[in-house]
Design a protein around this nucleic acid. Structure first.
Lengths: 139, 139
DNA sequence: CAGTATCCTATGCGATACTG
DNA sequence: CAGTATCGCATAGGATACTG
């Protein structure tokens, strides 16, 4: 459904909305980890996702739960056990996310190189007062 | 390359870095528009991307240019004409982004519904003092 | 037309401390 | 273990005004 309807502003708002959630600093990581591991507990996730704070993991998981992408199951034991896992909707996110993930792995180095080239050029920064189109390094 | 190496923290940093760029508020929109239209001028982009400010369009385009995803070509005319278009690297981003875009279009409504269900449940919020695992609405 | 420069605010997010 | 509560700063990003 809607695979060819990439028309105009119709799905721009949808895209914005989705990106606001999964495009934040941690959501993709959390979905990725849950996708690979099936079920994980709070501190397991915390250990796997390097650098995330307790606060942000909580907020991220709550948001994902609210959006119907993750389930949170509490087992009334002592000490408490809480397990997180992707919903069916969350599972469908794995593929597009994996696409981005693979692209990142494959092209991150190219981006790093592009950056240093750009930065080197900018710190030379002589203003050409004449000439034909600038920065014409097409492709 | 690296389609099965979704190992561990190896590409987590790459993913983070990439997400920090294309996961911001506007980059995906810009790449999407350039992907569909080939070449666009500054104000064409501005008109197509609803709500973006002049400042943010400039910053977004500069960052994409710096990362080697977009070229900027200045034609020394009066009034000035500046054209933006995806690089070859930028073109390769179209597919993973389209995947996310399609997913958003297909599942945005489900997310909106999940949210209202979640919110409705939270504003009732009676604390069960006993019982088996909570929120067990698996799937 | 295609920007830059400046100001200002909301919020994202980390650090830290406390709790059932 | 799995959180919540509070503080505080850095930054993202909008509004507005000016320019080659």
């Amino acid at each position: 459904m809607a695979l060819e309807d990439t028309s105009e502003a119709s799905n721009c708002s949808a895209m914005s909305d989705v990106l606001n959630r999964i495009g934040d600093k941690w959501s993709v990581m959390v979905v990725g980890m849950l996708g690979r591991n099936g079920t994980l507990r709070f501190n397991e996730l915390k250990r796997m996702i390097n650098g995330i704070s307790q606060r942000m993991l909580t907020l991220t998981l709550r948001n994902l739960e609210r959006d119907g992408l993750v389930t949170r199951t509490i087992y009334p034991e002592v000490p408490p056990r809480v397990e997180y896992r992707l919903t069916r909707l969350g599972e469908t996110l794995r593929e597009p996310i994996a696409g981005l993930w693979d692209w990142s792995a494959a092209n991150h180095q190219a981006i790093v190189e592009a950056r240093s080239i750009y930065d080197a050029r900018e710190t030379g920064h002589h203003h050409p007062t004449t000439g034909s189109p600038e920065h014409v390094q097409r492709q």
